[in-house]
Design a protein around this nucleic acid. Structure first.
Length: 445
RNA sequence: GGUCCCAUCGUCCAGAGGCCUAGGACACCGCCCUUUCAAGGCGGCGACACGAGUUCGAAUCUCGUUGGGACCGCCA
């Protein structure tokens, strides 16, 4: 018997895709891909006031940015569509009538309410949290503790969340519901509706919350809002992906830096943790850096290009080969794409160097020595890092100089920075002519 | 207040009764390499919330306490 997994990510288009939503979407995606199942994107736009088409678009763009593709959704018709709740009104009224006819629901002020039964023990076995049971009269209560019947159709005719999810998950054949832990408390209410309708409930897997530094639930105001902000801050989709995957989960083999393929292969719902996780930007930085290291240099280049442009650099005269190798030469320095773009600016702009470095630290007594050395260095037969370094080492020895004395000023003249990759690697990448130009500008050759 | 959930280094995770004088990663600190570190190497600091049980033996099981979180909308 073949059983195909069907999971869904069901955001409401009342805001962009934020980090918590991305986390939930990611785990659904991982589960679907790991099991070879189907990942459905359903838009829960029953709040007519706050839902917008722009947010819906933004959420989808955010998911695409993260590399989370869905198999069925508003833009990808499938046999269980439509995929916006606002377009599924027929089923909501149909089942509401069924409940009404059975005497399990009633109308009040134009709304339809589901009558919460008493004395029933509602239980379910969460894939992450284990066995959970709640007395039906405790499933939905007012602030004062009295039973509160569940509104299923609002006065405006739209279904409420707890009702629409049940109808949709059921009619869309969703068999595994993976969502945030904040919904664990809603599950008994939904289960009551499943039972009243005679539906078979899906399995549930709740995910631990992601908390801010203050250990409070991440709100729209707190921390970054949309995942796109992470892009602007310099984070790779792969970095955010890897980082988020590690919040509440870790592969059995202990690997921390992994590709999407590895994550899919190793993903396992049973090893998801229950404890809420605090978002740690330091860790994100580190993972992002590691992801930049293993990323294909030409792909990384395409991501870096816009940052260089934003920084005001014109890179049109450089080949992709030169640019990509320049990034390679950076040797893993920089934690974000933004930093990488900044740190590597001397490969694409001498103006940036000139702005930073005025050569006023050059001791005039030493200038002749430097000129002599750089003059010879520029004429080195082989302009490779190894050859340049070997040449320099022997030169400082025979001329009673030191590496520090000649290499440090060279770094300053070439990069305008105190810190850089090995200066001979930088020189080789810049090329003989460019090195000559820069040294000449500072009157060092 | 009520209901539900959670509880291992500052943070993220390992740990599913003896392998734990609790392991890894990030951060932090120190050392090393080197022409520099924003790269690399090595090391250090640092936790089982508390109390009762159960057991020959508990971070792991049970109960309680404490602490934290979520939810209590005709929002989702």
């Amino acid at each position: 018997m073949s059983f195909k997994t069907r999971v869904r990510f069901a955001p409401s288009p009342t805001g962009s895709l934020h980090i918590g939503g991305a986390h939930t979407a990611l785990f659904n995606w991982l589960y679907a891909r790991h099991t070879g199942g189907t990942f459905v994107l359903r838009i829960e736009d029953t709040d007519k006031e706050r839902s917008t088409a722009e947010y819906e678009q933004s959420i989808m763009d955010g998911m695409r940015w993260m590399g989370l593709d869905w198999d069925e959704g508003p833009d990808k018709p499938g046999e269980f569509g439509p995929y916006r709740q606002s377009e599924r009104m027929d089923s909501y009224t149909k089942y509401a009538n069924r409940l009404l006819d059975a005497g399990l629901a009633y109308k009040d002020d134009g709304a339809v309410l589901f009558k919460v039964p008493t004395g029933k023990l509602v239980t379910f076995d969460d894939e992450v949290y284990g066995h959970i049971e709640v007395l039906s009269e405790n499933a939905s209560v007012n602030q004062d503790g009295t039973i509160k019947d569940i509104v299923i159709l609002k006065r405006d005719g739209m279904p409420t969340y707890n009702y629409a999810v049940v109808i949709d998950d059921c009619t869309m054949n969703i068999n595994m519901v993976i969502r945030g832990e904040d919904h664990i408390i809603n599950t008994p209410k939904q289960l009551l509706i499943y039972q009243a309708l005679g539906f078979e409930a899906p399995k549930f897997a709740h995910l631990p919350m992601i908390l801010g530094k203050d250990k409070k639930k991440l709100s729209k105001r707190q921390g970054a809002t949309s995942v796109f902000e992470y892009n602007d801050l310099g984070y790779l989709p792969d970095g955010v992906f890897n980082f988020l995957a590690l919040l509440g989960w870790s592969p059995k083999n202990g690997q921390e830096i992994f590709t999407r393929e590895e994550a899919i292969k190793n993903f396992d719902l049973s090893s998801v943790t229950k404890k809420p996780a605090v978002l740690d930007m330091d860790k994100l930085n580190h993972i992002n850096q590691e992801q930049m290291k293993i990323m294909d240099p030409y792909k990384l280049l395409e991501i870096i290009k816009p940052f260089w442009k934003d920084l005001g650099f014109d890179i049109s005269s450089y080949s992709d080969d030169y640019l990509a190798f320049s990034l390679q030469t950076m040797g893993g320095r920089g934690q974000t794409t933004l930093q990488l773009a900044e740190y590597s600016d001397y490969f694409i702009s001498f103006d940036a160097v000139k702005e930073r470095y005025k050569a006023d630290d050059i001791n005039e007594e030493h200038r002749p020595v430097l000129k002599k050395f750089y003059g010879e260095l520029l004429n080195a037969p082989d302009f490779t890092p190894e050859a340049l370094e070997a040449f320099t080492k022997s030169w400082v020895e025979t001329n009673e100089s030191s590496m520090k004395e000649v290499a440090l000023p060279l770094r300053w003249a070439l990069t305008g920075r105190k810190v850089s990759p090995g200066v001979f690697e930088v020189a080789a990448q810049l090329g003989r002519d460019e090195c000559r130009r820069r040294l000449a500008y500072y009157d060092l050759v």
